[in-house]
Design a protein around this nucleic acid. Structure first.
Length: 454
RNA sequence: GGAGAGGUACCCAAGCAGGCUGAAGGGGACGGUUUGCUAAACCGUUAGUAGGGGAUAAACCCCUAGCGAGGGUUCGAAUCCCUCCCUCUCCGCCA
């Protein structure tokens, strides 16, 4: 989420209209443009009156001082001098009376115009939020996910000489995933990881964080898992996606749906100093999602749950490099899958399937033998300055130069639960045990196999 | 949770019996003088920002807002009133 530059909308309504069509978004662009014109008209009028009021107030102040000094002089003056002073004082007081009465009526006009302006601003702001980001020129046009483009594939889906099972069968059989008890203590769409299952989850988190911090140059952040409304608004979860999130009753706290929220908001309302870009952050967090619109979808297993773990990658970069940064971000996420030797493909989302805020998005999809299909495991996007404008994150190129909006990017690196599911399914053996990928063994006390009860 | 103190520019800090104070004074930073170099000393500069308008190749100029945030009183608010937020100290409670 985020917003476009009002000036850009004013100057290039054609581009905005095209983006609306490409992303299948409805918005009242003509009304927005009309309000914008109206706003500037009223603003000019109200500011002219304020300037007038300020001049009058200053004049009152000057006159008051003059009166004061005249009164002092009057004490010693006599005859014609005293008479002249009294005359002058009277003239000043008359002028003050006149100034006050005109300024008073000026004030009420200002009040009226300002409240009109507030109404216009409010509607304009909410209309501006209905405009999606403009897709980058390299994004294929298309209606829905069927028009997405597979950019590359890596690895080969394993062939089994037995019928491969889904992780929701394998996990409980190994007693490393417990959906039944999860549903007892919390509800549906939760999972309890046990023994080697818990260890696997923890190992994956550490493995991913180590990879991104030590080899890819990201700085680790461990953020709060609850944030306030201002933060949720900064990255656009509020007000639009209120129902997709969990709210803590009687507080202003919301459970984060992704670490992107706290991490992107770290620099909200800040101007980053020259030389501080690019900033690369990675963050583990639990993610909480209400999945309100997903009834009946992925009800089994840990593909779609209310709480899952994720390692998120977030970048703040100067505008000119953001598309190169997107490519490297995708590679950083891909490397996790390569090192784990999990087959996947990279999909470039078409205009109709990409999110509201994104200018360009690649999805990583991992092969899940149990479902015999690729499933999304990471989504990497360049938001350009769309998020930064809303969250007001800027930077300076030189100590004296004008602040500019940064470009923000983020991507999962990766969704941990889905990665665990992919490992369980891709590394399953005929006897129901699971081979532990080489790179994870150091993180699991050397464990090479997950066997029942491990 | 109880009690107190406080939020002013890059930092510290004065102003708070309303008016040439959008802000004294330090520090820092930047520029200059001096100097073989450095240091010191001296001089100068230093709200940044947002919005609107004007001029333009640009530099620039004008207006408005802005002293934690939002309201109110007033001709006029950093200054008076109300609400909220945050920070610090002490006590209590805890991991």
């Amino acid at each position: 989420m985020g917003m476009l530059d009002l000036r850009f909308v004013r100057e290039r309504p054609d581009v905005v209209a095209r983006a609306l069509a490409l992303k299948h978004v409805e918005a009242d662009l003509p009304r927005l443009l009309a309000l914008d014109a109206k706003r500037r008209e009223v603003l000019a009028a109200v500011e002219e009156r304020k300037a007038e009021r300020n001049r009058a107030s200053e004049r009152v102040s000057v006159l008051r001082r003059e009166i004061a000094s005249l009164e002092k002089a009057l004490a010693e003056a006599t005859g014609t001098a005293a008479f002249a002073a009294r005359e002058r004082i009277q003239a000043c007081e008359d002028e003050i009376a006149g100034l006050i009465s005109t300024t008073r009526s000026l004030g009420s006009t200002i009040d009226e115009q300002e409240s009109l302006l507030r109404e216009i601003d409010a509607e304009l702001a909410s209309l501006l939020l209905t405009l999606p980001n403009v897709p980058h020129a390299s994004v294929p046009e298309g209606a829905d996910e069927n028009d997405n483009v597979v950019v590359r594939s890596w690895g080969t889906p394993p062939s089994f000489d037995f019928q491969p099972k889904a992780h929701w069968d394998l996990g409980p059989a190994l007693d490393i995933l417990d959906f039944e008890r999860a549903s007892k203590i919390a509800g549906s769409r939760f999972v309890v990881n046990k023994g080697a299952g818990a260890l696997l989850e923890r190992a994956l988190i550490n493995f991913m964080l180590d990879l991104h911090t030590r080899r890819h140059g990201y700085r680790e952040i461990f953020p709060p898992f609850m944030v306030n409304s201002a933060t949720m608004t900064g990255t656009g979860q509020l007000p639009k996606f209120k129902d997709d999130m969990f709210h803590v009753e009687n507080t202003d706290y919301w459970l984060i749906p992704t670490a992107e929220v706290p991490v992107t908001n770290l620099y909200r309302d800040e101007i980053l100093a020259p030389g501080s870009l690019p900033v690369y952050h990675c963050a583990y967090s639990a993610c909480f999602r209400a999945e309100s619109g997903a009834a009946g979808k992925d009800t089994r297993g840990m593909i779609r749950v209310h709480q899952f773990n994720k390692v998120e990658l977030v970048k703040f970069v100067p505008p000119e490099t953001s598309y190169d940064e997107l490519e490297s971000l995708v590679h950083d996420a891909e490397e996790v899958l390569q090192l784990l030797n999990l087959p996947y493909r990279v999909v470039l989302l078409c205009t109709g399937d990409m999110s509201f805020a994104s200018a360009k998005t690649y999805d990583l999809e991992v092969w899940l033998p149990g479902q015999n299909r690729y499933r999304e495991i990471s989504s990497c996007s360049n938001f350009e300055d769309f998020q930064a404008r809303r969250a007001n994150i800027r930077f300076r190129r030189e100590p004296k130069s004008k602040p500019e909006f940064v470009h923000t990017l983020n991507g999962s690196g990766l969704a941990v639960g889905r990665t665990a599911a992919a490992i369980i399914e891709n590394y399953q053996q005929a006897d129901g045990s699971v081979v532990v990928p080489e790179v994870l063994r150091p993180y699991m006390g050397g464990m090479a196999y997950i066997t029942p009860g491990a």
